[in-house]
């Protein structure tokens, strides 16, 4: 089987290694440029099931801010990112929001929850 050469930039950590990968089909047969073994996992993931963490915001009613930041509990499939954003855009929470609150359970059937990443206390009448 013919070998294919491809380049990747690993995003697992801030170092951002530039990877030179030799592939046989979708199997990594050789890799250069990586500083640790996570590079191999990264490329394997990019080839078979690329995923990304998604961070965005949801609307909150009655809170000190009109939005609460949220994130995917674990990386979600890259092709589903904009579907997920569309779903999140429709959500409106009611203050108070607690860090770790599940905003959407099993988003898009991925088995991944969307969590709040901070507290949004109730806006007091006085302020």
């Amino acid at each position: 089987m013919a070998h294919e050469h491809r380049k990747f930039i690993c995003i697992t950590c801030p170092r951002g290694c530039a990877l030179d990968v030799t592939l046989e089909g979708e199997v990594v047969v050789q890799m250069e440029g990586n500083s640790c073994k996570r590079g191999i996992d990264y490329v394997t993931g990019e080839l078979n099931d690329p995923r990304r963490m998604v961070t965005t915001t949801v609307r909150v009613r009655g809170g000190v801010h009109p939005l609460a930041p949220v994130y995917t509990e674990s990386p979600i499939p890259k092709p589903r990112i904009f579907d997920l954003l569309a779903v999140i855009r429709k959500v409106e929470l009611k203050a108070p929001v607690k860090i770790g609150d599940v905003v959407i359970e099993n988003a898009l059937g991925t088995g991944i929850n969307i969590l709040a990443s901070r507290n949004i206390p109730v806006k007091s009448e006085a302020s």
């Binding site: 963490m53 961070t55 930041p69 994130y71 860090i99 990443s117 901070r118 507290n119």
Partner: peptide, 10 residues
């Protein structure tokens, strides 16, 4: 752990 900024602050 890979955390969002607000969670890190919290």
């Amino acid at each position: 752990k890979d955390m969002p900024g607000p969670a890190y602050a919290q």
